[in-house]
Nucleic acid binder design. Structure first.
Length: 116
RNA sequence: UAAAGCAGCCGGAUAAUCGCGCAUUGCGCUAAUCAGUAUCGAAAGAUACAACUUGUAAUUACAGGGAUUAACAAUGUGAGGAAAGUCCGUGCAUCCAAGGACAGAUCGCCGGGGAAACCCCGGACGGCGUGAGCCGGUGGAUAGGACCACAGAAAACAUACUGCUAACGGCUAUUUAGUACGAGCGAUGGUGCAACGGCGAGGUAAGAGCUCACCGGCGAUGUCGAGAGGCAUCGGCCAGGCAACCCCCGAUAGGAUGCAAGAUUAACUUGAAGGCUAUAAAGGCUGUCCGCCAACUUCAGAAAUAUCGCUAGAGAUUGCGAGUAAUCGCAAUACCAGACAGAUGAUUAUCUAUAAACAGAACACGGCUUACGGGCUGCUUUAUUUU
RNA sequence: GGGCGAUUAGCGCAGUUGGUAGCGCAUCACAUUGACGUUGUGAGGGUCACGUGUUCGAGUCACGUAUCGCCCA
């Protein structure tokens, strides 16, 4: 889990980020990016796994946790590329990514941020 | 030893590095903010200074003391046996109704437990299994109605149909005999899931519980039992199935909606209605009256990333006692998730049986049902072997 | 989180006092035509989502399971 200040929480913010339609996809994970920010505030991140992806809550939670942990470790290492220029980021997991382990998820997230 | 049956338990552990939710405490020379003034906020509300209080001096001065938010630090704590399905029941909340009856609903062997339940325990009966055991929505079919396809004479009424009988009366012939007209009979009909008991013997003109033995079912009496019911004796043969179809009988319950229930705050801006009346108070146009506007009241809209509901309980653990048991009583101990884009994770090492099953709290609780890798314990049954 | 509904042929749907499962389109064959289309005639195709029970008998009645869909801010 990330601290609260890093999390994207507002429903309107989610809708606004989706509306930009600036997205990248790899290995069952889709990254949506918001507008480039003007003020120096923290970039906020949301993680989404739909109920349609898998029926059981345990597997959905597992994927969200892996994505979160990957993002946290990348943020900690400092090699965030251009991602911190954006106001908001959303990672959406699909059924392809469900069975992958932590290292695979980490590489995918890293690759997505690199392409941003 | 093997195969079964029943009951119960566990649902990885330890260490290192990084990381999250909540609670408490700390931190004011980390930052921001705060009563009457000042500030934040839509509001509820929150707070430095002042006041108050403590200490030191002595009438005024100095020092300390509060809280919130964010960040930081420390400590504590943090998913299940099913948290699941939402199949039952209850608390809790709002709305409707409040008196009585009917309709409708739910339940249905007996006794006990429980707040209640499509709940649990013990027993009865029926069925299954060699057995330990398991399964069962199991009241009433002479209160009444409906239905029972096809087949069959007939599916409930046995009054019909198909038949049987020459003992009796009649008729023909007149000794024997013949004839189903009267009369008697309910065996024959083999279809069906099911045919007003079954099977054998006696009996007869033909037959028939008409009589008898055995079996099945029904009723009465006696006896055992708290009761469902068991056992024994006697009696008479009239008693199809179906109530998880309507129904009858008995019992139970206010109904509906569900925490996205609902409560607090009610700015803002928009619309509609009420209202200047009796009483108290009462702004503006104009001193008074009328009238109009504002204020006021009600409803709706919009604003939920606010606060509460939100977890101390029909609870948990341990011990003792009552009871066959479900369960109940008493005592002690500790407080043990409370989020709101939603907390338990990642990596590495070691151990054990190779860490590998089903699976994530969302108001709470009691059940039921379903899913589940592997392991452990106790009791019981059957089979085999050894002593 | 809570509350509801549906599942029948390849597709879309009927099916009530429980008694031989149907309709339309599609598929196949034949006829018609020089050929195709249209049209006509006929045929095939079903675990009534799955399981257990009640019943002589279940698509229908009762209970459980699975899948899909809808509503509530």
């Amino acid at each position: 889990m990330l601290p609260k200040q890093y999390r994207l929480k507002n429903k309107a913010a989610f809708a606004a980020t989706y509306r930009i339609k600036n997205s990248f996809h790899k290995g069952g994970i889709t990254l949506f990016a918001g507008i480039k920010k003007k003020e120096t505030i923290q970039t906020k991140v949301g993680f989404v796994v739909s109920k349609k992806t898998h029926k059981r809550a345990v597997k959905r939670n597992r994927l969200k946790r892996l994505m979160r942990e990957s993002y946290r470790l990348i943020l900690k290492s400092g090699t965030t590329y251009n991602s911190q220029e954006y106001l908001s980021l959303i990672f959406v997991g699909s059924s392809k990514a469900l069975d992958k382990n932590f290292k695979e998820i980490y590489n995918i997230i890293n690759n997505l941020l690199e392409r941003l």
